[in-house]
Design a protein around this nucleic acid. Sequence first.
RNA 1: CCGGAUGUGGUGAAAUUGGUAGACACGUCAGACUUAGGAUCUGAUGCCGUAAGGUGUGGGGGUUCGAGUCCCUCCAUCCGGACCA
Length: 970
Amino acid sequence: MEYKFREIEKKWQQQWINTNAYRVLNVSEKPKFYVLDMFPYPSGAGLHVGHPLGYIASDIYSRFKRLKGFNVLHPMGYDAFGLPAEQYAIEHGVHPAVSTDQNINNFRRQLDNIGFCYDWDREVRTCDPGYYKWTQWIFLQLFNSFYNRKTNKAEKIDVLIASFETEGNASHPIPNSQFPITSFTAEEWKSFDEKTQQDILMQYRLAYCGYGEVNWCEALGTVLANDEVVNGVSERGGHPVVKKKLRQWYLRITEYADRLLEGLERIEFSESMKEMQTNWIGKSSGAEIEFKVKSENAKDKSLRVYTTRPDTIFGVDFMVVAPEHELVDLIKSNDQATAVDEYIAYVKSRSERERQAEKKISGVFTGAYAVNPFNGREIPIWISEYVLAGYGTGAIMAVPCGDERDFKFAQHFNIPITNIIGKHFNGEDANATKDAILENSGFLNGTPMREAAEIVIGKLEESGIGVRKVNYRMRDAAFSRQRYWGEPFPIQWKDGTAYALSETELPLLLPEVDSYSPGPEGEGPLANIPEWVAKELETNTMPGYAGSSWYFLRYMDPHNDKAFCDRSVSDYWNQVDIYIGGTEHAVGHLLYSRMWTKALYDLGHIGYDEPFKKLVNQGMIQGSSRFVYRLNPEGDEEHVNKTKANYPNPIFISYGIYEKYISQQKAHPHEFKAFIDNKYPGFIFTDKMGADHISISKLHVDVNFVDGYELDMDAFKKWRNHEFAGAEFILEEGKYICGSEVEKMSKTKYNTVNPDDLVDKYGADTFRMYEMFLGPVEISKPWDTKGIEGVHRFLKKLWRLFYDDLKGQVWNNDKATDAELKVLHKTIKKIEDDTERFSFNTGVSTFMIAVNELSDLKCNKKEILEQLLILLTPYAPHVSEELWAALGNSGSILDASFPKFEAKYVTESTKDYPVAINGKTRTELTLDLSITQAEVEAIVLNNETVLKWLDGKQPKKIIYVKNKMINVVI
RNA sequence: CCGGAUGUGGUGAAAUUGGUAGACACGUCAGACUUAGGAUCUGAUGCCGUAAGGUGUGGGGGUUCGAGUCCCUCCAUCCGGACCA
């Protein structure tokens, strides 16, 4: 009987649907376990072999945990709002909901093909009103909350209002220093009109509306978050991005900066992932110092700077302010006014990209001076674009002997440099050391730098000219898009003030629109709908990460229409035990989800403040592209036409020949000409100067008709509507060999491999095991289908332990021998270890070894095979289920329990152990591990070879290593 | 420039706490069965050497009876952040 994987897999997939085999209940006697995949954005391109890698890993782990007796939550859904569907709508006029739906159906079909154990009853789609109702609801929780710095958590805005009514804002100063009102009493609060009160409250809300510089992408017609902008262009599409002031919604994630940092210590993320988040948050501590300004045009002004190195205060040789700094216009001297204006005009003319790309030193002196508060020294104030308006105070104190950029600036403009670090400064490079003893530093002379910072901060605070200050690089997260395909904000405007809709009005449905193009003045498409605008509803929509910041909670209680997730349910499922996905979400999704979880926790809606206990990053599967090399006619027009007439068919040369004659390092055009002239006389043109004109195009060829590197020439001729039907090939050793390169897997590079094709050819079980067999889940690697045969052979070999092609059923009820039991129990132990530590590649190997050994032993015993199948279930569920039933078991193997290994079969009792002498030469002794240490010594010391080596000397010591090796030291 | 990770055969990779490096598979070679083989099975396969033997985990150094594994240093590759004061 043959292994008919197609029939088997179809049959069991249907059976699992019929029996609801993967239904998970929220009530169980068993301990819970939550395994989560990062849900996909359903793109039109469908799945390629790279996508399921993480899904297969999580599927294996879920099934394993189920066998181990856990109630496992393992859901799947779709991150369905987002730009590509909207772009598609603009270009093709198809409603995003329609194209998204189609894409989801296709994804689902592809996923089902592979045999995943998702509980599809729990599927979520972020674009579903039943889902985004709760996204809007959570937004309202954020809108109606503020961050109480006293209690260090989010609280209801009512708490804040009550506090204002009794004591003004003394306990809760306004976080935004730019806001015109700074402090007020209870009476003043009560006297404010409604609009003023609302404006003030907006300064505190966790989700708030404000004006700010945003990353505006003209091509996409929308605002992008910082992490969606890469090197000055949009992450998606690579369009230029500029800064623009717009009314925007924000999340006050900066209030959570410290807790986001602290939380990293409690969760299992990879070092690099933690590092990325830490960098993104960018916490630094230092001081803000106020310098009095001496300027002919401005009196009583002072310049506030932020520094992490207050210990270098005596090394300040100049000050630098950002070109956008508010003081610039006030303090510029009459002499310098023209130069300053010119410089600012120059800076404005430069785009963000130019500023990033060419970092040349530029700047201008303002003509004003700042006064060092400790020694009264007058320090020139400069303007330069290397100081950023958005960070700190937009002004710095420059210490050229200790800071590279300051040093270069001083050098460039010939500003004298004060050395406060003695021999640590060589006059040629700045030295940012903290180990120096301070010199030229007034009262700090002789003080180690590490101690000086504290002393300076103390003095500053004492005299009121500065404060200790912690700064973060992270900005509040922009939370609105001028787009259609996203969640509408449950916000209504009245007289320029935003009000929350009541919860009973949710979901606020996304309306139909006639056109997906932007509304007036950079507003979203919703601004084109008269009824929407008449009701003064917010015309922005939420960004892609809104729905994905909490989806892991919805899976727990997906059909609840009373709450986003019942508290008792989230208490049961608790944190995601293991979360699997790519590294690309390091500073986006993973940070936002953590913040939302913390906010929901603060407000009492869930019982934990970190969503993911452990994160596993799956590697990317790259494409391994294949190339063919086409010889093009080249030379003067006459020659080209002649060649085209003589040789109308495209000519392709094999990679080896291309390598030999053409590839850049070793081009031999003359030899190549001679070679080609043999077959195609006159093809290559040699001009009067004797130069050979050779033109070769390197073309991507579909990897699906290249076997390894060898091109299937017939398939190639039929490719792309017979575009190359008449192709001629110059072969090497009778074959056409393709060139190769590792690139991103993409349709345009013809290097995608569709899982459907592989499942069709080898079966889902083979496909699953092969993806795991490729290597560790975390490692990125190019796809190579070559080895899949080996895994397929393994499953066929397994099958033959049960069925013989001729004899039919061969398994029997004989009693297993010790040798057979040993194979089984060794395998149980190894599979348990491998699977538990996510080493699925060695897991697959372990099965191969087991089946090889059982084949060698000719073991067809049910007693052994049955247990082996249970182990195999997570990896190859279909074939396990089939053979499990064949052995006469009535229930599903999914409900079996993972076998326990018996120690006596795993630790061997007798074996030949090597004896090392001085760790070098080895000889063999047969020992029984049950004997005592003294007996071992006696045997070792009476061993002939050892005696010879000892040569009458006493051994210094005998070392026992792990019951495995014994080392005699002479 | 800073930070993180990784370097093991022709290839993907094992080696879980420092203990016989290269498991398992691909590929290659040889053989068996076969009209045939892109089916199946058996054997060989790190490198040098006919062999005995030597040598070998990016290079150099160190700790240890013993190092792929630990420490120092250099090199290479990949990823991330880059004017953040």
